[in-house]
């Protein structure tokens, strides 16, 4: 299948997190037609293998994801761009993986493994957690938009915190503070703590970034309740336990719970994987841009487990992630396939 048709078809098949079955079946069938040995694993991930001999000893994993956030974006080609939900995040990078890998013949002992994972866009990261257990690769490339001339080295961590304060009702004309007022005071203290933490840290990657996702108050006539869901983007080497203790100390009467913890992860720029990309970029007379991202990806899940050279690569502008005008430049998509193919040639020798 021609690379643009592959991407367009993948984008046309809606696949919100938890509903990836149809696109997984399409990807497996397409990979089989392109020469992969392909199947759907127990988590629902689409998996394709390319190897020249049985019993390979070294895996090179290309880990993309098939799911998208909700929000229908009409699939169409306009002025050299393909619009559609997932065109950038991250069916573009996953289609790049399939198209580039299908042109490679790995040397004996090496195996290319292309994975379309489920549930990357939700905190479960179900697909990545499954493959983190199932494989132990020598190298890993994560499928996320870095731009065709960029390589992403790391992602911030993430943590969701739920604050719940319950207290007996009192008359609004009385002196007691309402649960809403107390909750807001807590949040101000949290912001102050983050500001203190971030002093002298110029890079966003090194900072602790707080946001409120939702804030609600309710009452059943006997008790008032305030509930805040807060999201935090975390720097490297950040202790979740110490942070939870700090948040609890700022709210002695409330219940603080943590969910969806992902530690930050950053690989280095001096290893055979980055070298393979460098060779490819230089052959195309490109000077690569190295990036770190404020978001998270499946690198946060598999990076600390596999502890192998790892980068994220894929065409597209991540500013368009999750937006109503998500699109990919078709020329950039084809260029990324060429860059990745040459990098894989280096790795699979």
């Amino acid at each position: 299948m021609e690379p643009l048709s592959l991407l367009r078809k993948m984008v046309e098949i809606e696949s919100h997190s938890g509903q990836e079955k149809n696109v997984a079946q399409f990807i497996v069938k397409t990979m089989q037609e392109l020469g992969f040995e392909a199947h759907i694993d127990s988590a629902g991930n689409a998996i394709g293998y390319l190897q020249s001999e049985p019993n390979p000893t070294e895996d090179i994993i290309l880990l993309g994801h098939m799911d998208t956030v909700p929000g229908h974006v009409l699939v169409r080609e306009e002025e050299g761009k393909l619009y559609g939900r997932g065109s950038v995040d991250a069916k573009g990078p996953l289609a790049t993986f399939i198209a580039a890998a299908s042109q490679i013949k790995p040397a004996p002992g090496k195996r290319l493994v292309v994975i379309g994972a489920v549930e990357e866009e939700v905190t479960s990261s179900k697909g990545a957690r499954q493959v983190a257990k199932d494989y132990k690769p020598a190298y890993c490339i994560i499928g996320e938009p870095s731009g065709f001339n960029g390589v992403t080295l790391g992602y911030k961590g993430a943590l969701q915190v739920h604050y719940t304060l319950t207290q007996g009702m009192s008359h609004t004309a009385g002196p007691a503070s309402s649960v809403g007022e107390i909750a807001i005071e807590w949040w101000k203290k949290v912001q102050n703590y983050c500001e203190e933490f971030n002093q002298e840290k110029k890079a966003l990657f090194d900072q602790l970034l707080p946001t409120i996702r939702s804030i609600n108050t309710s009452s059943d006539g006997l008790e008032d309740k305030a509930h805040i869901i807060a999201g935090f983007r975390l720097p490297l080497n950040f202790s979740q336990e110490d942070f939870l203790e700090k948040l609890s100390s700022l709210a002695p009467d409330a219940k603080i719970e943590c969910f969806g913890y992902e530690p930050a992860y950053r690989g280095n720029r001096s290893n055979p994987l980055v070298r393979a990309f460098m060779k490819s970029f230089l052959q195309s007379q490109l000077r690569p841009i190295f990036k770190v991202k404020t978001g998270t990806s499946d690198m946060n899940v598999v990076g600390p487990v596999w502890n192998c050279p790892i980068v994220a690569y894929g065409p597209g502008d991540s500013d368009l992630d999750h937006t109503p005008h998500e699109h990919i430049e078709i020329k950039e998509y084809h260029k990324a396939i060429d860059i990745l193919k040459e990098a894989l040639n280096q790795l699979c020798r």
Binding site: D89, I289, V292, K293, S297, S318, D321
Partner: peptide, 11 residues
């Protein structure tokens, strides 16, 4: 010295 690593929003 190697060029600085750029920071980017998103995934």
């Amino acid at each position: 010295l190697a060029p600085e690593v750029q920071e980017d929003w998103g995934e």
